[in-house]
Design a protein around this nucleic acid. Structure first.
Lengths: 220, 220
DNA sequence: CCTACCGATCGGTAGG
DNA sequence: CCTACCGATCGGTAGG
């Protein structure tokens, strides 16, 4: 553009060097996703404060300053990881609950447990663990946003557990039962290693046996 | 000492300024303890990586470089916090178990739960939460040391839970039951706030009701 | 235990 | 999205 006619002749074609990676205009969302996935994995394993934006850039094959083209700040990246994790979890939960809509609370609870283990320990599940263990790294405003999503997620649990408490199947107070139950499951992030003979189905069986000993054989 | 006789006359006495704080020689251990307590509190609330050695120094009323007179490095401080926390917890546990030595496993378990809540949520209880939530900040060598203390601590739990599994009072696998049980308790760090009507005794009642619904009324 | 300081690293930005 | 860079901060140290 506006190049003088006396410009030096250019090499014209240069097939060496890296090929122009996927020339689609919609790749921007793709790069953003790569940053989120890398950030989730790094935040989970090293923690938010110990992860540098350079680590995250490198995980997505970028230079050190480039993440800031996609995200305002490191804090915004953390929030985006948690928000995306919670939205995906809510979607999983809603889908699973549709299949168990009018079923007894035992079946409802089992569905929730199985879905929760998926979100927590399944493939590509770094987002929710980050949310569980980096809460303190959020600003108060960010916390409010995530807390609102968490309330939605826990509403289904409260319903199932309330029913079981009322029916006398659970002895403790409903709120404490929910907190301890979810705590028991969430803690699995610390010790669960996928291996033959320890599938998420079997883990679900164990959790149900522990909390509802009488009639927890698979009901579906 | 070795002062020349022609030294300029000194102001001799100067009652202003801070008084010479406790001139005992054994204060060194005291200062070290102050650093540990401050570090535990800061590590717990801000995380290890987000806590600066300057924060810790300030919490103990020292200058920025002074913690390194007492500890080799920031990492050594973290390890010392966890180690001291675990040794205190083991001592508490052993003492509580003496009073429940030949009792049935339900009583044993209740004793362990109550002691655990004390260590986890009682006054001055920042050390164990740091251990629970900063595991990844340890070096592999440090981890081995803490893991050994944890094995000792969990041995008593394994004994009580094995007995309850054998007796059919707990349905799940003994190992998974232990992990989920401790997870449910450990998670309380995230939500428990001391307030009237939510004492650690009552929390213990709730935990026993949830996991051993039949006969969990206080037995002692 | 303080003073003064160092080298390294970090989140973020300007300009293209 | 890269290049080049900045100011601030951090863990740690020398010397007293």
């Amino acid at each position: 553009m506006a190049q003088g006619s006396t410009a030096v002749p250019e090499p014209a074609r240069r097939p060496r060097g890296r090929p122009p990676k996927a020339p689609h205009a919609l790749d921007e969302g793709n790069r953003r996703q790569e940053l989120l996935r890398g950030a989730a994995r790094l935040f989970r394993h090293k923690g938010f404060a110990a992860t540098t934006t350079r680590d995250i850039a490198a995980a997505a094959g970028m230079q050190s300053g480039s993440p800031f083209y996609h995200f305002e700040s490191k804090a915004a990246l953390l929030f985006a990881v948690m928000e995306q994790g919670m939205r995906a979890a809510l979607q999983n939960q809603a889908q699973a609950l549709q299949a168990a809509l009018a079923k007894p609370p035992e079946v409802l609870l089992r569905t929730l447990v199985r879905t929760h283990f998926d979100v927590l320990l399944g493939p590509g599940s770094d987002f929710i663990p980050v949310m569980l263990y980096e809460w303190r790294s959020l600003t108060p405003a960010q916390r409010a946003g995530i807390a609102s999503l968490q309330r939605d997620y826990e509403a289904a649990w409260a319903a199932a557990l309330d029913a079981l408490c009322t029916a006398g199947r659970i002895g403790a107070d409903a709120r404490v039962a929910r907190l301890m139950f979810l705590g028991a499951l969430n803690w699995s992030v610390q010790w669960y290693k996928p291996r033959p003979g320890a599938s998420l189905d079997e883990l679900t069986d164990q959790a149900m046996l522990l909390f509802l000993p009488d009639n927890s054989r698979r009901t579906a």
